[in-house]
Every structure is written in C-alpha cells, then in structure tokens.
Computed example of a mutant assay.
Amino acid sequence: MEAYINRKNGKRYIVIAEGIDCTNARDGTPVIVYHPEEKPELVCVREKAEFLVKFDPEPAQ
C-alpha cells in the first residue's frame, strides 16, 4: 500500500484502493480510499483529482 503525506497537516495516510463513485450525480468519478496511519479504522474517500492536489507521495526510503 502506498503512503502519502497531507500537505496541510504533515500527517501520513495510507491508500487502500482506487475506486469509482457510483452516486447518480457523480457516476464514474475516480476516488481514492485511504486512512490516517494512526487511525486505520477511519476509512476516508476523496475525489482522486482533489487527493492528488492535497497529498504528496511519501518519498521512497
């Protein structure tokens, strides 16, 4: 799984999957499913385009 860093708060988030929003008004919109590293039980979803603006891939170590 890939890790990303939130540009605003500097926290680490883990991408679980990519998906497609199937809501009628947003059908076909690509989304990212992810969770905060320290709280894996909190699953979050955000449009992929917005996610890529607000998060940076964690640099390879």
Rank of each mutant, 00 (worst) to 15 (best):
M1Q: 02
M1R: 01
M1T: 02
M1Y: 10
E2W: 07
E2P: 02
A3Q: 06
Y4K: 08
Y4I: 08
Y4D: 05
Y4M: 06
I5D: 01
I5W: 03
N6F: 11
N6I: 11
R7T: 14
K8G: 04
N9M: 10
G10N: 12
K11A: 01
K11C: 01
K11Q: 05
R12A: 07
R12S: 07
R12N: 09
Y13L: 00
I14C: 10
I14E: 12
I14W: 14
V15F: 02
I16S: 06
I16L: 03
G19N: 04
G19Q: 03
G19M: 06
I20H: 01
I20L: 04
I20Y: 02
D21N: 11
C22K: 08
T23S: 14
N24E: 14
N24S: 12
A25T: 11
R26H: 08
D27P: 00
G28W: 06
P30Y: 10
P30S: 09
V31G: 07
I32H: 02
V33R: 09
V33Q: 08
Y34P: 11
Y34K: 10
H35C: 12
H35S: 11
P36I: 00
P36K: 02
P36M: 01
P36C: 02
P36Y: 15
E37R: 13
E38C: 09
E38G: 10
E38H: 15
K39G: 04
E41I: 02
E41N: 03
L42Y: 00
L42K: 13
V43P: 12
C44L: 13
C44W: 03
C44Q: 09
V45E: 01
V45P: 03
V45Y: 00
V45A: 00
V45D: 00
E47Q: 06
K48Q: 11
K48P: 00
K48H: 03
K48C: 06
A49M: 06
A49D: 10
L52W: 01
L52H: 02
L52C: 06
V53K: 15
V53C: 10
V53I: 15
V53W: 01
K54H: 10
F55V: 09
F55E: 03
D56R: 15
D56W: 04
D56S: 13
D56H: 10
P57C: 09
E58N: 07
Q61N: 13
